[in-house]
Each structure stands twice: as structure tokens, then as C-alpha cells.
Amino acid sequence: HNLTITQGKLFFHYNPKLCLSEIHKMEEVSGTKGRQERNDIALKTNGDQASCENELLKFSYIRTSFDKILLRWEPYWPPDFRDLLGFMLFYKEAPYQNVTEFDGQDACGSNSWTVVDIDPPLRSNDPKSQNHPGWLMRGLKPWTQYAIFVKTLVTFSDERRTYGAKSDIIYVQTDATNPSVPLDPISVSNSSSQIILKWKPPSDPNGNITHYLVFWERQAEDSELFELDYCLKGLKLPSRTWSPPFESEDSQKHNQSEYEDSAGECCSCPKTDSQILKELEESSFRKTFEDYLHNVVFVPRKTSSGTGAEDPRPSRKRRSLGDVGNVTVAVPTVAAFPNTSSTSVPTSPEEHRPFEKVVNKESLVISGLRHFTGYRIELQACNQDTPEERCSVAAYVSARTMPEAKADDIVGPVTHEIFENNVVHLMWQEPKEPNGLIVLYEVSYRRYGDEELHLCVSRKHFALERGCRLRGLSPGNYSVRIRATSLAGNGSWTEPTYFYVTDYLDVPSNIA
């Protein structure tokens, strides 16, 4: 807008934040220059609390790290170098490059900038070799853009010569660093050979998330399962459950009422301010606690030095998902009996873990797994792929695949051998790939016309006998059925096997 004052003059007093240069501009645009008398524009009460600059400061050096910015700028000295009290560095987070010096300023003089007072450097006698002032900004957020400017702080001049310097606002972004852990990993099994893994992005990506790394490792069953005799009275049979499938998407929606109208769909109840505040506090606490764990609990591995020492970490090797089922080394339970199943799973520490690289999504279907087997899954978020990966501390989750139908069934015939004193040795093959492992066998036998009897055969007993022995049988026709019990439950009964026990007292003698 054009402003013209045809008559009258300007009068400025007691404006401590208004620089004289701005008042002189007002004289020019209003056409009143030359009308004012000496005392109409006070030299001592206008701009006496402001830094009124008329020179431009330029930054000469900028260096960044993930949490620091090192700045240096060209030296500046007023005509009387004693008038320079120091520099004021202003900075704040700036997602967009549209910041002005006066953003967030209120009537009390406060604003949204963080201000650092910096002492002037030592003055050199040689004007050509003056030290460049600077400042190291610490405690910054990774991968965050900051708006920065600097200006001088000078003393009051009796001659009211307006001098000083100020830089333009520059924008500097800190470097990326390792992201925080992925949030809320959930693993479920939808079949006997697959596990579905879902997660949420890290709360602090500290860069642009480029991919996720998912490692999985087959877990050995508890050692007590191999040692305890679950045929003993009072000892509860062990059981394991597989990871249940995901709930429906509708039930997972946030901010939804727990109660549904019987007449149909209901609208979600909005969260109160107290609920939102509580969630923010919980989120802040979780982030602080995660940072504490990362800094205190997890110790970084030592990389190899120039002395030739090897990095103890196993090298990563990509495998196809079809090879995942046989990740671990199978060892027989008892070496003397080769027909026992290889369900003991000690994992070799030198073995390469299978892994998958996930790009542009937060889910993965891990296939080719062994049925009813526990897996430990390790999830890392990465925001750099080359020249070397920059990934987060791992988040861990466990899951067990679903049982395989008929995996616990005894394959092959049940054979028998009759000894003296009416002892019958029953023999059968253990299931080759049971659900988890076989903890015991149930032997059901009966003599024709009598009630059915049951015998429990422990895992250890089966390994020693290759089956079991029935003792003290009365003469007669017998039928026997056997079924295995694994961590997933009972298998199917075998087809009945028949044998006849004679009275050993009636056996004919070869003595003449």
C-alpha cells in the first residue's frame, strides 16, 4: 500500500525493539523526510534493546553428524571492536523451508527459537588472519532439518551509529543413524509349514526405512522333555500350542467401542483428552525405555581390526524358502538304536541362519518350516543398504507352526516275539517326523474274553527296548493296539495285532 503524509511529521519514542533503520525507511515511504526535528525521533529510546544489523554474515563451514552440527561463519568486528559482546545463534526444527525470524513471537518477546549466546573469538592483530567464530550444536535429532541463523550482539553506541551483522536463515539436516526397533511384532501360524509375521514401523526411523531383515531359527525343545518319565503317576503330560491366527481386521481397528449394538453396526467412541494424553505418555515412556535398553543392555560386537582377528559373527547367506525346513542338525536320541526319531534339535552355532529381506511392506510369510516346531524370529529395521547396512537392534518374537495331521501315527506293522515265561516283546517304529517329539506310547492289549488293559511306555523305555515287553501273560489269544502321544496330543491307534500265548508248562520236552 502507498502511504503519503502531505502535512505533519513523524514522532517515535520509547520503541526499544524498533531499529532506527526501520524508522528511516518509514520517513522515505511516507514522504516526511526532512520535516522531523532532532528530538522527534529519539536516538536513545528507539532500538536500544534490539540488534540492528546492516551487514550480512556468511557461514564459512558446515559439518553434520547424526546428532551434531558444527558451524563456522566469517569474522565480524565493528569499528570499535570492544562493542562486540558476542553472537546469538538461533535454531529450531523446520520440516519445511518457510521459516521466518519472527515465527511464534508474542507480545512478551518470546519466540519459538532456541538461542545460544556465543563469546567472540580472540581478536588477531592481523586483519587478514582473524579467527572464524563458530559453535557445535549438540543433542539434535537424527535425520531432522533445522533452520539456523546467527547475528551479532553489540553494545549501545553513544554516537548512535547503527552497526551489526546478521546471516540469512539456512537449512541444515542432520545425518541418518540406526533406527529404533520395529514396533509390535506379531507372529502367527496359518499352516503346519508357515508363519505369518506382521509389525509396525519404528517410532524413530532416523532416516528413510529402506528394508527390513527377518531372521528365523528353529528352537530346540526343553531338555526336561527328553529326561522326564511322563508315565509316572502324578506327572502331567506336557503340551505345546501353536500360535493362533490373526483376529479379523475389524476387531483390530483402534479407537473402536468394545460393545456392539445388537441391531447392527455401531460407531466408534472418540477417545477423551485424558485417554489420548495417557497414550502419549505411555508411548514416550516406551521410547525412553527402549533407548535405555539399547544403550545399557546391548553391547556392540567388536569388529575385526587390522591384526587379522576374525569377526566372530557368522556370515549372512541367503537361502531359498524351500530350504528352511531342514535348518537344524538332527541327532538321534540314543545312538545305539537307529530307529528312534531325530527330534532332539541342538543347533550348531556355526550354522548360517536363513533370512529374508523385506522391502516396502511390514509383513512376511515364512514358508518351508517344520510342522509343530518353535521358531525364534528376529526382526531388524534398516535405513541404508549400501555401502553397508545400517540397521536397528533386533526385536524378537516366537511362534510355533501348526501340527501336521497323521504325523504322530505309527507307520509300519507292530511285530512281536514270544519268549519263555510268557513274555512277549512288542516292537514298532517311532514316527519319523512327529509333531514336536514323542513323549510316550500307549499300549492297549486284551486277552479274548477279558477286559482291555493299558500300559504306558516312556520315551526312554522305548529307546532301550525298541518297544516294550509284556510279562506274566496268561495263555490265550491276544490283540494289541499302540498309539503315540506327542507334544500336540495323541496320534491314531494302530491296526490290531494278534498273537497267541501258550502255557509254557505244557511245552513238550526233548528229553527222552
Rank of each mutant, 00 (worst) to 15 (best):
S203T: 08
S203F: 15
S203Q: 10
D204Q: 04
I209A: 08
Y212F: 15
Y212P: 00
V214K: 00
V214A: 07
F215W: 01
W216F: 12
R218P: 13
D222R: 08
S223H: 12
E224H: 13
L225D: 06
L225G: 02
L225S: 11
F226K: 03
L228G: 12
D229C: 07
K233S: 11
K233E: 14
G234F: 15
G234C: 15
L235N: 07
K236C: 11
L237E: 15
P238L: 08
S239D: 11
R240G: 13
R240L: 08
S243V: 10
P244I: 12
P244C: 10
P244N: 14
P245T: 12
F246P: 08
E247H: 08
S248H: 06
E249A: 14
D250T: 07
D250V: 06
D250P: 14
S251D: 12
S251L: 13
Q252D: 15
Q252S: 14
Q256G: 00
Q256N: 05
S257V: 09
S262R: 14
A263Y: 15
C267W: 02
S268N: 14
S268P: 15
T272N: 10
D273S: 10
D273K: 09
D273I: 14
Q275D: 06
I276S: 10
I276E: 11
L277W: 12
K278R: 09
E279A: 06
E279T: 10
E279S: 08
E281I: 15
E282T: 08
S283V: 05
S284A: 14
K287D: 11
K287H: 12
T288M: 11
T288W: 13
F289K: 04
F289Q: 05
E290W: 05
Y292T: 07
Y292P: 06
L293R: 15
H294R: 05
N295D: 05
N295F: 13
N295T: 08
V296G: 12
F298R: 13
F298A: 15
K302C: 10
T303G: 11
S304K: 15
G306K: 13
T307M: 09
T307G: 12
E310L: 15
E310S: 12
E310V: 03
P314E: 14
P314L: 07
R318D: 11
R319L: 07
R319M: 08
G322R: 05
G322Y: 06
G322I: 13
V324W: 09
V324R: 08
V324L: 09
V324G: 06
G325P: 08
N326T: 07
V327H: 06
V327L: 11
A330M: 13
V331D: 13
P332F: 15
P332S: 11
V334E: 04
V334M: 10
A335E: 13
A335G: 07
P338G: 11
P338M: 12
N339P: 11
N339C: 09
N339L: 08
T340Y: 13
T340H: 05
S342C: 04
T343Q: 08
T343S: 08
S344A: 06
S344C: 07
K357H: 03
K357T: 09
V359Q: 14
V359H: 12
V359G: 12
N360L: 07
K361C: 09
S363H: 05
S363C: 12
S363R: 05
V365E: 05
S367C: 09
S367E: 03
G368C: 04
G368H: 04
L369I: 02
F372E: 03
G374F: 14
Y375W: 02
Y375G: 00
I377Y: 08
L379D: 01
Q380R: 03
Q380C: 08
N383D: 05
N383F: 06
E389W: 15
E389Q: 12
E389V: 09
R390E: 02
V393I: 06
A394I: 15
Y396T: 11
Y396A: 08
Y396C: 09
Y396S: 12
V397H: 15
S398I: 10
P403R: 08
P403V: 09
E404D: 11
E404H: 13
D408G: 01
D409K: 08
D409L: 14
V411I: 05
G412Q: 11
V414P: 07
T415Y: 13
H416L: 10
H416C: 08
E417T: 12
I418G: 04
N421E: 15
L426I: 02
M427S: 11
W428L: 00
Q429Y: 05
E430S: 12
P431C: 08
P431V: 05
K432M: 05
K432D: 11
P434I: 04
P434K: 04
P434Y: 03
N435Q: 01
G436E: 03
L437T: 01
L440D: 04
Y441Q: 01
E442F: 12
V443G: 00
V443N: 00
S444T: 11
S444N: 01
Y445I: 02
Y445V: 05
R446S: 02
R446H: 14
Y448F: 13
Y448M: 09
G449C: 06
E451L: 14
L453N: 15
L455W: 05
C456T: 02
S458L: 09
R459G: 09
R459S: 09
K460H: 09
K460E: 04
F462W: 13
F462M: 12
A463H: 08
A463N: 14
L464G: 11
L464N: 15
L470Y: 01
L470T: 02
L470S: 00
L470V: 14
R471F: 15
G472N: 09
G472I: 09
G472T: 07
S474L: 09
S474T: 10
S474P: 07
P475V: 08
G476K: 00
G476Q: 00
Y478F: 05
Y478H: 06
S479Y: 02
S479K: 02
V480S: 02
V480H: 00
I482L: 08
I482E: 00
R483A: 04
N490G: 14
S492L: 14
T494W: 01
E495C: 04
Y498F: 08
Y498I: 14
F499A: 02
L505W: 06
D506I: 12
D506L: 13
D506T: 15
S509F: 10
